[in-house]
Design a protein around this nucleic acid. Structure first.
Lengths: 340, 340
DNA sequence: CTGAAAGCGCTAACAT
DNA sequence: ATGTTAGCGCTTTCAG
């Protein structure tokens, strides 16, 4: 079962490898008759050029790396479906690198991707979401970006302007807060997310500022941090609900925590949205599956993904790209804040 | 920003490339002093060997391909988290290929993966789940498997014994049915899944046979096919509930359809599990997030993934592997069938 | 329109 | 313990 190479084809067609290469790549005119002969042999042997060899000479692999913290959070797969189509169409293929937000795994993957000579990297989560990204880690990415185009999705490396694509989470959080205030809520809490994560910080900032804008002073004790999981949402919510004086509406850092919050509320015998309104973020499929359906903010994850890839592609082609592409989020009002 | 190669290192260390290669791979003893010198240079230049070149000579890429229909169904990411750790530990990296169950995209990816010289492929969904897989498509996979190790997850290519790893969905479906019968249900329906899909067929077979075993004759009009989506579950369930004579329990092909079914039931003003009991399949995170929590069958997706990779790895190493590895599913009884 | 030959960056015999 | 040399399979000048 010997692998057939351009040489085999060339020999049997009685031409040089160059010619075979030419019909393979359409890189120069080839006489019709010889082209036909070669094409037939390719067909006959089901010949497929070895991408490694090709990439080695061309210095281009048509492979990219996608780094993200947690494939289990439906938000990320959503971003993919966007990327994947664009990718496939452009003949790219990608390595999926799940890091669990772990710095060392990130570093390891960064190295691996470089070894594999990927043409570019899409980086989500992890250190680029950290409020205080250790300089060493930032530098590592910046250095690599000198060899390989990197685009950051929904994150940043302060002081190091790498091309970024993001949804405007600040605006999204404003929308949520405005929405709740409009519904008459004055006592609003915020739960979930790690305090040292930009996603969280940005949302809380918008949340507080919007409250103030409406003459409501934010209450620190109604802002409770944790992580991004269902379990966390449940725990924080149930704690919040135990207070004598408790909020009538809660803004959750993402859909996962919202689901936890909803469970906690129902367990506490409360009805949603009458006793307490709940809002999520991300508009994962979960949001419209759960009962009550969740009011949430769409990050336009699909578009986010497509945009990220397009920016990367331009970077790869050596074209100029905007340093920051912002995508507008969209508030989706559903049953968890407004009765049907 | 010239890329540094083994030659650069060798020259500066005043040794031959071979020696550099040796310290890189630990493939032969190197004097301590020269090793040190080389290591320092590697450090200094942040040198990383070019994996393409290496793979080209070694005929091994440490890359594998994972083909699956839909990354948006949480079941698949779950399988990953299993695979990924095992993979990363063994120094492998993988291409994620999402096909949407589309035959052509599958074929395209199969070709692409071959070009990229992956060491192996894990194949899930699509044609290997089809009851009547067109011979051309089956042959394509079988032929490829002569060049590249392939393991099929939860699927098969009839008459073509490729190594397979699967959860015993038949047993899982038996468990579900037994469970419902035990609870006193005699009128049980089944919804969702495509009729030409093995997953569906197997479940329905087990379902019907278990019913018969208990003297209940299955009713064809209570078995309704569709696909694997939430929307489908909702539609089918709501149809079923409109019948005068309707089931008191419904077995859904997967968690997604269960969620739809739950929504439909609640919309119809029914309470779960009192008026109608609902069971899912897969135990995706969704199952324990939803209210009521879903009784479902765990496919042990994590273990499934790990096992798949281990089989693949043995295949890659030219070791003997069992043609079929079966993983036992587990019934998880929750609120959607039994009141808390 | 076609071919010879060099080279991509690395590993692996085969010496020494 | 180290070096020489020949590939791996392809693309790409450079010459016809």
């Amino acid at each position: 079962m010997k692998r057939v190479t351009v040489y085999d084809i060339a020999k049997e067609a009685k031409v040089s490898v160059t010619t075979v290469s030419r019909v393979l790549n359409g890189t120069a005119p080839v006489k019709h008759s010889t082209r036909k002969k070669i094409t037939e042999l390719i067909e006959k042997y089901q010949f497929q050029p070895n991408a490694l060899a090709r990439s080695l000479t061309k210095k281009e692999t048509k492979m990219i790396g996608i780094i993200l913290p947690d494939i289990t959070n439906p938000f990320f797969p959503e971003v993919f479906t966007g990327v994947e189509n664009a990718l496939a169409e452009a003949g790219y293929t990608f390595f999926l690198c799940t890091t669990g937000g772990n710095d060392e795994r990130e570093s390891a993957y960064l190295g691996l991707l470089r070894e594999k000579q990927v043409d570019g990297i899409i980086f989500m989560g992890g250190r680029i979401n950290s409020v205080e990204c250790p300089p060493v880690l930032a530098e590592e990415v910046v250095n690599l970006s000198k060899h390989i185009p990197i685009v950051l999705v929904n994150g940043t490396l302060p002081g190091n302007p790498l091309p970024r694509v993001k949804t405007d989470e600040y605006v999204g959080a404003e929308m949520v807060t405005e929405h709740l205030i409009e519904l008459g809520h004055r006592k609003i809490g915020f739960i979930g997310g790690m305090e040292e994560t930009t996603t969280t910080v940005e949302k809380v900032a918008a949340f507080e500022s919007t409250l103030k804008k409406h003459g409501i002073s934010p209450r620190k004790d109604w802002i409770r941090y944790g992580d991004f999981s269902v379990a966390c949402g449940r725990k924080l919510m149930s704690g919040l609900l135990k207070e004598r004086d408790r909020p009538t509406a809660v803004f959750c850092v993402n859909d996962f925590t919202s689901v936890g919050a909803i469970k906690a509320a129902i367990e506490a015998g409360l009805s949603i949205p009458d006793d307490v309104a709940i809002v999520g973020f991300d508009d994962t499929p979960l949001a419209s599956s759960i009962i009550p359906e969740l009011t949430t903010v769409s990050q336009e994850s699909n578009r986010l993904g497509v945009t990220a890839f397009h920016v990367l592609q331009r970077l790869i082609n050596g074209e100029q790209v905007e340093e920051l592409s912002v995508i507008q989020p969209r508030l989706l009002v559903r049953e968890s804040t407004v009765k049907k």
